[in-house]
């Protein structure tokens, strides 16, 4: 596989959210505003890419019996780096994202990519795979939050685009709306791009 193929496969063809249904919890939690989703997505891309790279770099020396522990350790380290960075440099966004940045650690996509890809492939490939999976995840977050922010607040990235006639849909601000928007998204994508196999 070429580097481009790796990216396309992990970002779209085998997208973690709509193909593997991973990382749903955070997709529900942070998607009420597009800005939150974007920052969260960037955080996940960063953690995925670098943890994949690191794990792949030392994969020859990782003993099989403790490989999960090592993966978790590496992922946790990068997540904490992101958390500290946000707290120090973007305190407002860090406050809004609250506990969710820390919860990137428990995002199944990270363990999934570490176990399925990084522990068996070359460092650079793993880096690209991580960026791809993270980009796919960010894409889903942005689509959901676009709908939720547009209906819930009448704005996009915090910029009001609906006039004063617009009535905010409170349900879109609450977490349950992400459930059915995500479900519809998966539904549409499955119908359009993956013909159901009998």
């Amino acid at each position: 596989m070429t580097k481009k193929d790796i990216f396309i496969v992990s970002a779209f063809k085998e997208n973690s959210v709509w193909r593997q249904i991973l990382g749903i919890c955070s997709a529900l939690a942070v998607t009420n505003l597009m800005m939150n989703s974007l920052i969260m997505g960037l955080g996940v891309i960063f953690c995925l890419a670098l943890s994949g790279f690191t794990i792949s770099l030392i994969r020859a020396w990782i003993p099989r019996s403790v490989r999960m522990m090592v993966q978790t350790l590496i992922i946790a380290a990068y997540v904490i780096i992101v958390d500290i960075f946000l707290q120090a440099n973007l305190p407002l966004i860090s406050k809004q994202l609250g506990p969710y940045v820390g919860l990137i650690i428990t995002n199944c996509i990270l363990m999934g990519r570490a176990e399925a890809f990084a522990s068996q492939n070359k460092p650079l490939d793993s880096l690209i795979d991580g960026v791809g999976a993270g980009a796919g995840y960010t894409l889903v977050l942005l689509v959901i939050s676009f709908i939720r922010e547009l209906f819930g607040f009448g704005s996009i990235f915090g910029i009001k685009i609906m006039g004063s006639w617009w009535t905010n849909w409170s349900i879109m601000v609450m977490a349950p709306s992400a459930f059915f928007i995500l479900a519809m998204l998966i539904w549409i994508i499955n119908v359009k791009f993956y013909k159901a196999k009998a």
Partner: peptide
């Protein structure tokens, strides 16, 4: 229920 939660004002 959907509209009740969405538009509490109205």
């Amino acid at each position: 229920t959907f509209v009740y939660i969405s538009f509490p004002n109205q």
